[in-house]
């Protein structure tokens, strides 16, 4: 492992293997994802993309392998998580502002309550995603795109260094998509790292710098212009790969 002063990689994955019962979902994954760049994780259904994100968050048991987030200026990086909007309980009695304020909880630690400056900071994050008018609205009254932007604002409130996103553009309208990608590019200019599970092949070259093609195993990972080739795409999306892991 590279122990230089400022590690150029934000996420390092080595020999990661995850299996549900007897079926492998990720097999011997080796990855080094660059800091300060927008990385897309792509692959067919069941290829293990969401599993990779969840493994990075430490949420699922693994058969083998190690995931590490090299320190930034001697400190452990903060990981922000933007889930798919279907995974949330939208009838929960919280407002948009409440949800975003939750992003500050990690910094507060146990027992300490959110202060006024935390709530003000949450409003700032809402402004960045264009949701400030919805601050007091209960979350079930939002459209899909608005829900996505709420979660994004929450990750911003976490003051994360690394943003892990699960299909941030799924089910959002074009205007929302543009505003999200603008925000991501702004994050990049601040030196933040974004790793997003992405589904739309046509937008990869415009939106992302780095792409990781996965189909249970890593097919290819690197700069978009080098890796995003027809040959690699065929290898990734070819159905025969699934299950053929030995």
């Amino acid at each position: 492992m590279n122990n230089s002063a400022e590690n150029e990689y934000a996420v390092e994955v080595s020999r990661l293997t995850v299996a549900y019962d007897s079926k492998p979902v990720l097999s011997n994954v080796d990855l080094e994802l660059p800091r300060g760049m927008l990385t897309a994780v792509m692959g067919p259904n069941g290829a293990g993309k969401t599993t990779l994100i969840k493994a990075m968050l430490g949420l699922i048991p693994t058969v083998n392998g190690k995931i590490s987030f090299p320190e930034i200026k001697g400190k452990k990086p903060c990981i922000g998580y933007v889930p798919q909007s279907e995974s949330a309980d939208w009838d929960f009695p919280v407002s948009v502002l409440d949800v975003v304020t939750m992003g500050c909880y990690g910094r507060l630690g146990w027992i300490k309550r959110p202060r006024r400056e935390d709530r003000e900071f949450a409003m700032e994050c809402l402004k960045k995603t264009g949701m400030e008018d919805y601050a007091d609205r209960q979350i079930s009254r939002l459209s899909g795109g608005q829900q996505q932007r709420t979660f994004l604002a929450r990750a911003l409130a976490q003051k994360a260094d690394i943003y892990l996103m699960d299909e941030p553009f799924k089910g959002v309208d074009n205007a929302t998509e543009r505003s999200i990608i603008d925000l991501l590019k702004e994050l990049r200019s601040e030196g933040k790292t974004v790793v997003a599970v992405h589904h739309d092949l046509s937008t990869v070259s415009d939106y992302f710098d780095w792409v990781t093609l996965i189909n249970i195993k890593v097919v290819a990972s690197g700069e978009v212009r080098k890796v995003f080739t027809d040959e690699n795409l065929t290898r990734t999306y070819r159905a025969a790969n699934v299950g053929n892991f030995i």
């Binding site: 949420l59 949800v99 909880y105």
Partner: peptide, 22 residues
């Protein structure tokens, strides 16, 4: 009262809670 925010976040989004260390 003491654990209000912890109970709130864990009930709403246990994944986020875990990520943040609760």
């Amino acid at each position: 009262a003491v654990f209000y925010k912890e109970l709130q976040v864990v009930s709403f989004d246990p994944v986020l809670a875990a990520v943040m260390g609760f």
